[in-house]
């Protein structure tokens, strides 16, 4: 999914039809992220030029949104739902257990970039609370022990070269 070797000319193609004052930025950020897995820093000056603004303004916008990544994601992302229905059903316990097993906090990845932990907001699949999304696929309701087994399995699988 993530290819950091792509060069700006290909990036430029993704930005070809970008116009200022046309509500284009979010759409193009999604497009770049779909292609690269994140928004590479080389994109910032190009976006600024196309949208007739400064790189600082573009960086400001990018860093504002929690779903736009400025670094490549881990190979597997566990998205932990922070919503109230999950909270009521023990999601905090689950978060502490996931962090302990993986040795990382939210918005971090293991050193080998195998597994990442990401905080997501409620998307209303509350019948499954408490849940996590594994690369976007909901898994729930999960007990804390099930979450621990899941994290151990992901960590163990990736540990093998």
């Amino acid at each position: 999914m993530t290819d950091t070797t792509k060069t700006p000319p290909e990036l430029e193609q993704l930005l070809a039809d970008l116009k200022p004052d046309n509500a284009d930025l979010l759409a193009v950020l999604h497009r770049i992220q779909d292609a690269y897995g994140y928004v590479p820093p080389q994109a910032i000056p190009l976006l600024a030029e196309k949208l007739h603004t400064t790189p600082a303004m573009i960086y400001g916008a990018i860093s504002f949104y929690s779903e736009i990544r400025r670094e490549p994601p881990a190979r597997t992302t566990i998205s932990w739902c922070s919503g109230p229905a999950c909270r009521l059903k023990g999601s905090e316990n689950m978060r502490r257990a996931l962090e302990a097993v993986l040795g990382i906090g939210l918005e971090e990845s293991t050193d080998d970039k195998a597994v990442g932990l990401h905080l997501v907001q409620c998307d209303g699949t509350c019948a499954l609370a408490p849940l996590v999304r594994l690369d976007g696929h909901p898994k729930g309701p999960l007990t804390v022990s099930e979450a621990i087994r899941l994290a151990r399995e992901l960590k163990g699988k990736e540990g093998q070269p």
């Binding site: 950020l29 400001g60 504002f64 779903e67």
Partner: peptide
């Protein structure tokens, strides 16, 4: 792209305008 205050109408407008 993941921001709660964009649901506030003037926050939403800023977001449509390519800004934070």
């Amino acid at each position: 792209a993941g921001s709660y205050v964009c649901g506030e109408e003037t926050g939403l407008i800023s977001s449509v305008e390519d800004a934070r």
